[in-house]
Structures are given as structure tokens and as C-alpha cells.
């Protein structure tokens, strides 16, 4: 069995120390107590556990998403500023997915909705088909290829 890193208590401890802005021993002790209690209280709410496996892929995915956010910000800005001449052509795209892990799907939803110009509009858990809403839909094939190659494949590597 793999060794499991307790992500939640470490995150809570780091958050506590950052909010207080000090590394005094008393603050660390309080933070450890707080993180432990909250983790115990929350454990009953999360029956499914996720352990990211490939941190290098995760870092590369983060950089890719950052570049895409900047690019789509510029694209959406140009569409808005040119809206008096031409209203954008909105539309839906259906994408069949292979990713099944709920945490991977949650991260995919965050990436897609976080990029301006595309919003997650629905997901059918039985057929595993994702519906996207696109601000300016020119060709569907490019969107399907982008989502599957740029986001879905790294997420499948990360969450297995």
C-alpha cells in the first residue's frame, strides 16, 4: 500500500500560519490542533479519497492552464470590445470523456469554467458525455481536441 500524504491537515496548517503571518511555536501548536480537529470532523463527509500521483504532470498542467487563461482572457476581451459590430455566436459542444475519477472531473470542471469563454453546462454520468457552453463557437473539432489533449490526458495521468 502506498504511503499517503495527509494533504488536508498540512494545507490547513499552512493556511493558519499564513493568515497569522508568524511562525511562533505557540501559533504552530494552535495550528496543528486546529488542523487535526477539522480533519477529524471533515473525515466523515468525504468517503472518496484522492491522492495525486504525478506532481510533475500537475505542475505542467498548472502552467498550461495559466497560459490558456491569459490567452482566452485576451480573446474574450476582443469579442466584448467588438460586440457592437458582431455579436458572438454562442453554442454547445458535446464531448465524450474517458476520465471517470470524480476528483479529476471536479478539477476539469474548475479548469473549463475558470477559462473565460467556456462554461461547464452538464455531465451525464452514465454515458460520460460532457456538455460545454462556448461563447464564440467556430468549429467544434478544435474544442474537442483541446479539451481531450490538453486537459483530460494529464488529469488521467494524475488521478489514474
Amino acid at each position: 500500500m502506498r504511503r499517503r500524504v495527509p494533504v488536508l491537515p498540512v494545507f490547513l496548517l499552512v493556511m493558519w500560519l499564513a493568515l497569522n503571518g508568524s511562525f511562533a511555536p505557540a501559533q504552530i501548536a494552535l495550528g496543528v490542533l486546529f488542523a487535526g480537529l477539522v480533519t477529524l470532523a471533515v473525515a466523515a463527509l468525504r468517503p472518496v479519497f484522492a491522492w495525486p500521483r504525478r506532481f510533475d504532470v500537475a505542475v505542467r498542467l498548472f502552467v498550461v492552464v495559466l497560459v490558456d487563461v491569459i490567452r482566452s482572457n485576451i480573446a474574450v476581451g476582443r469579442i466584448i470590445l467588438g460586440a457592437s459590430k458582431r455579436q458572438p455566436h454562442v453554442g454547445f459542444v458535446k464531448i465524450p470523456l474517458e476520465l471517470r475519477d470524480p476528483h479529476g472531473l471536479a478539477v476539469l470542471a474548475m479548469i473549463i469554467t475558470g477559462c473565460p469563454g467556456s462554461v461547464w453546462a452538464g455531465h451525464d454520468t452514465e454515458s460520460n458525455v460532457l456538455t460545454l457552453h462556448i461563447l464564440d463557437l467556430q468549429d467544434e473539432v478544435t474544442w474537442i481536441r483541446t479539451v481531450k489533449q490538453r486537459y483530460e490526458r494529464p488529469l488521467m495521468e494524475i488521478f489514474g
Binding site: V69, N73, V76, G77, I80, A83, Q87, P88, V90, T113, G114, C115, P116, G117, S118, V119, H133, L135
Partner: peptide, 16 residues
């Protein structure tokens, strides 16, 4: 933007 479905994309710029 004239349509709600188009408008929902706009504020994402400010929040990202």
C-alpha cells in the same frame, strides 16, 4: 452582449 448565455462568460475575466 445581448444574450444571457453570452453574458455569463464576461465576468470570468474579472474574477480570473
Amino acid at each position: 452582449l445581448h444574450d444571457f448565455h453570452a453574458r455569463i462568460h464576461a465576468p470570468t475575466m474579472g474574477s480570473t
